[in-house]
Design a protein around this nucleic acid. Sequence first.
RNA 1: CGGGGCGUAGCGCAGCCUGGUAGCGCAUCUGCUUUGGGAGCAGAGGGUCGUCAGUUCGAAUCUGACCGCCCCGACCA
Length: 613
Amino acid sequence: MHRWSQLFIPTLREAPTDAEVASHKLLLRAGYIRQLGAGLYSYLFLGNRAINKIVAIVREEMDTIAQEMHLPALNPREAWEESGRWAGMGENMFRLKDRRGAELCLAMTHEEIVTSIARSELRSYKQLPQIWYQIQTKFRDEPRPKSGLLRVRQFLMKDAYSFDIDEAGLDASYAKHEAVYRRIFTRCGLDFLAVDADSGSMGGSASQEFMVYTDAGEDLIASSSSGYAANVEKATSQLAPVADLAPTGDGQPELVHTPEQKTIDEVAAFLGVERVHQMKTMAYIVEHLDADEKQIKAVGKARAVVAFLRGDHQINETKLSAIAGGVLRPMQPEEISVTFNAPAGYLGPIGLVAAPHPKKPGTLVVLDAALEGRTNLIAGANKEGYHLRNVTPMRDFRPTLVADVRSVNEGESDPIGGKPLRIGKAVEIGHIFKLGYRYSKSMGASVLNKDGKETTPIMGSYGIGIERILTAAIEQSAAKFAAQSIAQNAGDPKAVQSATESYALPPSIAPFQVVVTITNVREAALLAAGEEIAAALEQAGIDVLLDDRDERAGVKFKDAELIGVPFRIAIGKKLAEGKVELLNRLTNRTDDIPTAEVVHRLQAALSSSATHN
RNA sequence: CGGGGCGUAGCGCAGCCUGGUAGCGCAUCUGCUUUGGGAGCAGAGGGUCGUCAGUUCGAAUCUGACCGCCCCGACCA
């Protein structure tokens, strides 16, 4: 029996000023965690209990499709040299030396390690597929740890890796993970979305992120009621048709004097046109950091990239970077004038020499797909103080390629059902993706296939951030409480403020399922009833915390709320009538129930809250 | 790494401008009262004022360097 009077649950009346986001404040105030340094936290009794509950769910579900292992967190340099990531990880990896001067790192992830095991142990296609996972501490030297447990330097990750003989096998392994992830997050009580993600730097083919909408998040995602969901790095949308401008003069590109009019808005006002009738020019340098010799020979280590977009659209650098095949940085004005012999602010498509093919030398010119088929646009003239009218893509200039390189906007129609997109911040709690051959190939893993031929296995990689599940659950609940409170206390900012800092965890991951609050331990009858009820609940397999502290009732109620436990049984005045009070914090419903029915009623409440999740 | 803010008791803060040897609330401990929504009264304990150096008769206070933490940005398998 867990008795509050003997536990270390250091709740705080006020949150330290360092804490900004709701989950951070609440985790500190509830005594779940304490900070050791930037991005480093100690998980105290309650925090550790919640984490353990999450881990147990993850483990139980993962065990249905995979085998658990435990790999070293401390890795020798050599293991990371082979894949090229010793250099590739850059500053983000913690590095150290042993007493002999040998270099080591603290692993950020374990592709290299599983691949090296696979390479030395897997011989035949008959041994495939394999799915291996672990729940391990990961280390990342984040440039900016922040938001409590949301972005830290040491955290728990469930990472899994699949090895298959062919793509069909990988598809199956990937699908298994998707299904298991949905079960895990559902059991953890989260409202989540699986979104299409950019698989960019890991070089895979398909990738989905599991996201929870919350303002504390760092990613932006777009979703709609038709079931479409994507990271904005990858999201697309359908656009309403635009009526083009009528041609002027002979309909050919025509110079117009636009002195000092550089921005889209300035030109729009000056010429009396809409932004949709303009073409925006974005110039970048792409650096091929891990280019091979062949590529360097073909297009150089760095090359100019120009993208043309509709005047009211925003460039999506992730999309452009994927096409350009490297890291982008905006061109400096001097670089623009040297490279294109045109002033920044008046850069335009006509006269620009585009590479004929992305793999051929020259400037990579990308026309955003939204401009395809448009006519009579306004564009920069590559001449100080001038723009061009009547610019019609494909007639007046040819880009290297046409591609979607813009960012979607809130309210645009989603590409599958045409429903309006909702764009919001979200926290990434899991990520699955098809890695492909990157590691198996570079590290030389192979097995014999049916025909006795050496075959490189194809890999998948699948992560879950354990702490982020806890954080997201708190953020999600706190947001709900805040919204309710704002609705109920519209005129009272103080009440809103205090309720804003409340939450209740799903029973599956809460450190305890129920708190039994003895309102006054000095009354022998209350104390005895509390002990008895708590024991009965425990007997029934329910995780119960008995608040037997010699504190005032108010203090105990506040603390019970602070620690986020979803149910509370208060033993008080009504005991004289043989009743206690059951509070369901998830529904905010209070019932007076006969003591004899407590176990039964709570079990019913627990199972109904589980099915609602 | 760029920009901003902060560092004084466990937590929240004042004092710094104008140098004179540290204070308030909460928490903690003791006693009495109180006991269903963060109690009241009385008393007590607790601080190298982030670190180092400098200026000064004297530094929490002025100056410099460094360290740490938070926020915005860059970055982010």
